[in-house]
Nucleic acid binder design. Sequence first.
DNA 1: GAACTATACGGAGGCCCCCTCCGTTTCGCA
DNA 2: TGCGAAACGGAGGGGGCCTCCGTATAGTTC
Lengths: 204, 204
Amino acid sequence: MSLEIDFPMASSARVESLSTRPRRADASRNYDKLIDAALAAFTEAGAEASLESIARRAGVGIGTLYRHFPSRQALLEAVYIEEVESLCKSADDLTELPPWDALVGWLRRFVAYAATKRALATELMASVGQDSEVFRKCHDAIWHAGEPLLARARESGAVRPDVDFTDVVRMVSGITMIRTASPEDIDRILILALDGLRYRPPGE
Amino acid sequence: MSLEIDFPMASSARVESLSTRPRRADASRNYDKLIDAALAAFTEAGAEASLESIARRAGVGIGTLYRHFPSRQALLEAVYIEEVESLCKSADDLTELPPWDALVGWLRRFVAYAATKRALATELMASVGQDSEVFRKCHDAIWHAGEPLLARARESGAVRPDVDFTDVVRMVSGITMIRTASPEDIDRILILALDGLRYRPPGE
DNA sequence: GAACTATACGGAGGCCCCCTCCGTTTCGCA
DNA sequence: TGCGAAACGGAGGGGGCCTCCGTATAGTTC
């Protein structure tokens, strides 16, 4: 999995491997406690969960939180990496299916996963294109997981040739963010929008 | 225009006609000042603009703001109504066009308008389905403006028969919220997704 | 035009959050 | 064991949210 190549994940080092500094044992423990507390807090209270409450929950001072994660965004990103990783891994389960079904199946997982982590996903999407190395790598990982599924569908003729993976991800990301709709609604809209990938002008 | 039937808009009363209209002249003046200041502040600083800064900008106390708008949402809604109104009105300009072009043209305006007011739009979408009379009426107004365009396109055969206006609006709303993409990207994605409305399974 | 009252004003204050700064504590190496 | 670097933690300044209530005033009545 490309994500693991990009940042090798020792269980206690996680994203920190991006930075060069070795770390003290207490710092490493607190880092883990903060990630765990943040994951729980964001899941319960959404991405608006206060950083002070996360620090309290982790049993560390607010200063410690800020040393590890200089901004809310940095913390969100760190928490998000594991979620992205599991989404990317799920692409491997689908290689047996026909090309179109594999593509749609993975995009459905994309939506379902984003629905679960809606608050985090919103923040993630809102920060795309900003100056964030970690985030860019997650995006790359999604690309590496999903693009082959699209390419295969395209080569099999199930998808029209002019369709770009980035656009597909953006389109699906947008659908992910629809707040009004039930999961069933979302699925129907997803399938509807994806049918656009198959459409060919009648004249062609 | 149905919106005007739903809430007649005297220039100094605006949304107030829905609820209890401010009776005293000073209250009415302050209401207008607050709406103007909020529109400017949200446009400049996004929907996160602080209510205290809006009150300062309007030259009134924070207490006055809260009396008129008991929540941030109430203020956002009031400001949003005029925006929705102008979008709905724009549907009238398109009746001369062929059905598909009219539908796509209006949905493009929908996206462009939402892009301009992105922060407000995000809040609006996030609050759909919540208990908000004003908001529901705006939604109705959009439906009354846009649904005939879809119906016409459906009847002309340009759009497949199983397509629902609510789903189309949701889909387009989702696309509206893509932060990563340039306006050109958004337009391409919109057209791609809308092609799903025209797709017919090969066997049919 | 004076008196009166319902209405509206405004900002202080309580609470929470963001983030920084710096004195204190701890780790881990020699 | 001793020591310096690393990490900790929380006080504090700044600001936002919202409520409450004493003050001001518009509009009415005589």
